[in-house]
Write a protein that binds this DNA or RNA. Sequence first.
DNA 1: TCGGGATAGTAGCAAAGTCA
DNA 2: TGACTTTGCTACTATCCCGA
Length: 620
Amino acid sequence: MSLKSKLQRMKGHMALDSEKRASPAAARAAEEARGQTAAGLAAEAGGAGAFQTAEALAKAGGVLEAVEVSARAGGVLETAEVLAKADGALEAVGVSGEAGGVLETAEVLAKADAALEAFGVSGEAGGVLETAEVLAKAGGVLEAVEVSARAGGVLETVDVLIKAPGAPKTSEVSAETIGVFVAAEASTEVTAPSPADAESLSAIPAQAGKPPIPFADKWSRMQAFPYFWEDEHVMIREVRYPIGQRHGAYTFSQLNEAIAIWEASGREHPLSAAGKKADELLFFDTETTGLSGGAGNAVFLLGYSRLEGEEVIVRQHFLPAPYAEATLYQSFLEQAQKSSHLVTFNGKSFDWPQVRTRHTLVRDQVPALPTFGHLDLLHGARRLWKAELESCRLGIIEQEKLDVFREDDLPGFLAPVRYFDFLHSQDPDVIEGVLRHNEKDVLSLITLYIHMTRLLADQPSSDVSVAERFEIARWYDALGDQETAMAGYRLVADSDHVWSNRAKLAIGHLYKKQKNWQQALTVWEACIASSGYVPEEVYIEAAKLCEHQLGDAEKALRYTRQAYEQWKKRGTLLRNRTQSEAAAYQKRIDRLQAKVQGSAAEQESLLSGFLDWSDEREEM
DNA sequence: TCGGGATAGTAGCAAAGTCA
DNA sequence: TGACTTTGCTACTATCCCGA
């Protein structure tokens, strides 16, 4: 049975009246039994007759009442077993779940091939984790994820499923899940609001001539309101934080300090915000329906945070239906144009190209995208922490560097699943996890920017590791800021860190660029004299300097031989490289040898000439 | 899974200097 | 004068790895 038909079956169960499923005779029995239930069975529930009564009720079609009674009587497991056989699975789990017997019930139902329904309802009853574990063992992995996603227990479920024997990889689950939902989305209509939901529409004041917003009260509770344009609407969620609010290691107000730091430093740097105001920086992140890029991949959420006065405002523009893209961009551009620079994490490669691609499809209807400046923090983060962190994903950096710890965060790979589910149900509860995930992302971008600024500006109060200091110096070196690079390298060179000699090598290179040959040689010779590991490059650089700038071929030969000996000892796994490098060493040695011998012969010749001349004098 | 930006490494070239 | 070496630059390629 396909997931879609299972879901429809599930809905069908919910809608079916139990009497219609029972025979007319059974319906009459149920009427009688229910009368008894209401009148007297509750009182008897604690007695030994509860189970039998429940069985009778179940057979008579009074499933719901039967479970309620037997659950109170403590006979949940047995009742559920009977009910499962009686095709009353869905209701049984619902009630027994509320009665606290979720795990046992689900186990029974899983065996009765009613896994999906069991999980759906028990998940909603709060027993997601346990149920998922049971279902995973019962082989209902994919269904477990699908339904638990609806029940809001995604993270735990996935965790359980990954650990379950024979479970597919997370990515496989999500890929298959996405596929299922894409198919479902293509073939189903948006669910009409129930009478209860219709009632909730009044939460947002009715606007003349505007269509009603499904689940308006839920949107309202999530601080989201509709934005109408050209007969369509998108939802805009807005959350405000006081500027003094802390997010991880810093308060938002420290963004102003970060900008002041760049102003004061006078340094040219790709991450510099010198000359900009805080509200010109848009900390931006999107959520999309996939990773593959191209026009088939829609951006359904444009989120950003921005300092505005004494507040940080998170604003999220959400696409409630695929046909409202023009409205999405119209609403976004109205706000975004107030800023001049995007600050993103991998946004140069991912987010912004996606936005550009999708905007192209509606460019005739909406304003052009502004030509933003763009600070992409990914590449800087990688420069600083590539050697130190297992990965430079934002989540890892948050934990290791920013003191930001997320609780109950929705994994990014489930965002498309949730979105397709939303398109199906229009229920904002389904998408809330994605909005909160995005909100955290755009807030963490502020914290990350403050942190990186403080490191790069080498603030006295910032706790910079030696490794970070070296990478920062290397960055300034690459940017041509020799003074800042030199200062950083010196601190590392003077430390007892393993990278001390790497820093000395770099300092020598800087002196060499400045044509300060003697200083370069002094640094490299200090490196050679050190007790730590000396890269061969240091010997070779010293040799080049001695040969070409200082005219000391003998010293150059000595350093080249030292480098070659060390290189031979160290060895290498790459055969071709070994041969070519060995040949290069030998060639250099031969050339220097010839030079040394030549100069010795020349000296001898000069000396002999002098002696000849002396002899001549003496002869005179 | 894929696109793309950044980085590192390499190749090619011209210019300058040195040397036989 | 030509061969060789280094330097500095540009262009290209390979690799990494991040986003949902």
